[in-house]
């Protein structure tokens, strides 16, 4: 065991850490989802954790599902169900909103995220 050993091992450890970091930052998908009521952020959830949320909106209860890095509205008291039709949101910056019910969710995080989604 020499001093050079120590240096080499520590350097390699840094390399491993750096690769891991690059890997994490290279992800294009979101890391979290924020839920808004009337424009106020009321909750932030990890998107990897499977969850079934019920959220009270202006006109009733909406159901939001979170799983596998994605989130979506699955049930809503609104009539046009635009929020449900918007489907799964996965990329950072993506938004699904229910205007009548005053609820929205937005995906957060990831480095190749987009600042705005045009549709």
């Amino acid at each position: 065991m020499t001093r050079a050993d120590v240096v080499v091992i520590l350097l390699l450890a840094v390399v491993v850490g750096w690769v891991a970091m690059a890997q994490w930052q290279g992800r294009s998908t979101a890391t979290a989802v924020a839920i808004y009521r009337g424009g106020e952020r009321i909750a932030v959830h990890d998107v990897q954790q499977r969850q079934r949320l019920t959220v009270e909106g202006r006109i009733g209860t909406a159901h939001i599902h979170i799983e596998d890095g994605r989130a979506r509205f699955v049930q809503s008291p609104c009539q046009r169900k635009v929020c449900i039709h918007m489907g799964w949101q996965q990329y950072g910056g993506a938004v699904a909103a229910c205007v009548p019910n005053g609820l929205s969710l937005q995906m957060l995080g990831g480095s190749t995220t987009f600042d705005g989604i045009a549709s």
Binding site: M1, T2, R3, A4, D5, V6, V8, I9, L12
Partner: peptide, 13 residues
């Protein structure tokens, strides 16, 4: 000699 590695350093490399 200053950069000489022992079996451990070599093995990790």
């Amino acid at each position: 000699p200053a950069l000489r590695l022992s079996a451990v350093g070599l093995s990790v490399l």
